[in-house]
Amino acid sequence: MANIAAQRIRREIKEVMKNEETAGASIKLELIDNRWTELKGEIGGPPDTPYQGGTFILEIKVPETYPFNPPKIRFLTKIWHPNVSSVTGAICLDILKDQWAAALTLRTVLLSIQALLAAAEPNDPQDAVVAKQYREDPHMFEMTAIHWTNVYAGGPTPVFEFNQKVRVLTEIGVNEQVARVALSTYHWDIERATEEIFSIYP
């Protein structure tokens, strides 16, 4: 059955090339090491979202049993989104689990992930902390997501206040990523974040 998987991946890459060149949608698909088992996906942040202008890289692992079972996909680019783990990049999306259908392709899956960025589902969260913020403090969520998009995905909008706060913590020796996660989690309250960091990493 590996034959079907390899042949399909080859066709799908062609399909993405053909469609995206004409449609102008920001999706890319690349084989890694000329093996069909692992690919690199890339999606552009949808317009009118905090992810606009960012480029998000995805790790795609194709099982032997593809397309009868779904590909395993996670974000390699760090992202602040209720349905994506801010730590591991794991995605909570039904079609990657029990709603998978064999006629879905990597292209349609990447488009679905892109659509998920535009319409989060906070009631089915992957990252509880982000989802809580999304529900309870939408403005804080949006600014945090814009900040993460700027720092990790090459987004165009820097959030100076947040950059400043991260710098304060890195200057006292805190790892940058640790500082950013703690600050994002505690609504950019430096004292809360510092407290939390030094209780976890004494």
């Binding site: 060149e21 102008g24 949608a25 890319k28 084989l31 000329n34 317009p47 488009l111 659509a115």
Partner: peptide
């Protein structure tokens, strides 16, 4: 469905072997 009108036309791919 997310429509990305302003995104650059971007599609790169590298297929192994040649059924060109």
């Amino acid at each position: 469905m997310a429509e990305t009108s302003e995104a650059q036309a971007s599609a790169s791919a590298s297929a192994p072997g040649g059924d060109a």
